[in-house]
Amino acid sequence: MTDMILDKELDQTALARLQLEGRLLNAVFRGPTSTPERIGFRGELALRFGPQLADEARPPELSCEQVMAVANAGDLHLAFFAGWLLNFEHLKDVAEVLGDALSPDGKYFLFCDNIDLSSRYQVPYQRAVFYVLPIVESTVYNEILELLYLEKAELKKKDTAGKLDAVADAALRFDSPFEIISYEKGCELMGPVRNPNENRPV
C-alpha cells in the first residue's frame, strides 16, 4: 500500500491533524489495522519542537514515546491512546497536543517513570480521563498487556496491525476504577525526574 493511500485513509481520522503538524514520528506502524475503518499508529508523539532553522526538520524537544493509538474513519476522536512519559507533569502537554482528538468515551493510558510503583490513578484533564500508571515492565507494550490480561504468546501469532487491534479492543473494554486525583495533585505526589542519560557510556 502506498504512502498516498495511507495518507488518504489517515486523513479521515483524528490522527490527520497530528500527522499534518509533523507530530507522528518514528513510526513502527501507521496504517489500516485488521478492523474495518480503523487506522492505527505506533511510534512517537512529538509534544514540543525545537527551534526551526531554514527548511530543516524540527527535532522534538519533548515527546511521548512508545505510543500506541487507534482512530476510526469518520470519527473526530481517538478511541485509544497509550504512551510513556519520563515525567508525569507532561500529561498536560499530551492533553494539549491531542486537544480536540480527546473524548470522554476514549480510553487513554499514560505510563509514567516518576510515579510510585504502587500507584494507579485516573486523572481528568480537559475533556478526557487518563489512566496513569507506573512503568514497571520496561515497555508500554509489556505493561499494557499485563494490565489488560493479554497473553504475549498468543499475540506473537499476529502481525503488528493484529497486535494493535487486540490491545485496542481490550483497552476499550477496560473499566477498572483507580483513585481519581487532579492533575495538580499528581504533580504534588510525583517523584523526582530520572536523568535517562545517567550511567550511560560516553
Rank of each mutant, 00 (worst) to 15 (best):
N114L: 01
I135H: 01
R42K: 15
A170N: 01
L10A: 12
A82I: 05
V67A: 07
S63W: 02
E179A: 13
L86V: 06
S34Y: 01
R38I: 12
A79L: 07
D7F: 05
A166V: 04
A27C: 02
I180C: 01
E184C: 09
I181D: 09
F81V: 09
Y183I: 10
F88D: 00
E137F: 08
E188H: 07
F81S: 07
P201Y: 08
L133A: 00
G162Y: 00
L78W: 09
D159E: 09
N72A: 08
G31F: 03
K107Y: 01
M4R: 07
E9W: 01
R120L: 04
K163L: 05
P104M: 04
V140D: 06
E56K: 15
E146Y: 09
L147T: 06
L45W: 06
C64R: 04
L45E: 06
S138P: 08
T35W: 03
P51R: 14
V202T: 14
E184P: 11
L145P: 08
Q12H: 11
K163F: 02
E143I: 05
E44D: 13
L155R: 00
T2G: 13
P60A: 13
E179D: 12
F174Y: 15
L47Q: 06
P36Y: 04
Y121W: 15
A69G: 07
L145I: 04
I115Y: 02
F49N: 14
C112P: 05
A16F: 02
L150T: 00
A161E: 00
N87A: 06
T2W: 08
L15Y: 11
L53H: 13
E184R: 14
A168Q: 02
K157S: 04
S34D: 08
G106R: 00
S34T: 07
R42L: 10
D11M: 07
N114C: 04
L76S: 13
N142V: 02
T13D: 11
R58M: 15
P59I: 13
K107I: 01
Q19C: 03
G40S: 11
S138T: 14
Q122M: 15
L133N: 00
R48M: 08
L10Q: 11
V132C: 13
E56H: 14
P134K: 00
T139K: 04
A128Q: 14
D105S: 08
G191Q: 15
Y141V: 06
Q122W: 04
A170T: 10
E188G: 03
L45Q: 09
R200L: 15
L189E: 10
R17A: 15
V167Q: 03
S103I: 09
G186H: 07
E179T: 14
G191Y: 08
A69H: 05
L155C: 01
S138R: 12
L133M: 04
G43P: 06
G99R: 13
E44H: 08
F49T: 12
I5F: 06
A46M: 12
M68D: 08
L86T: 04
I144S: 01
N72R: 14
L45V: 11
A170Q: 03
D93K: 02
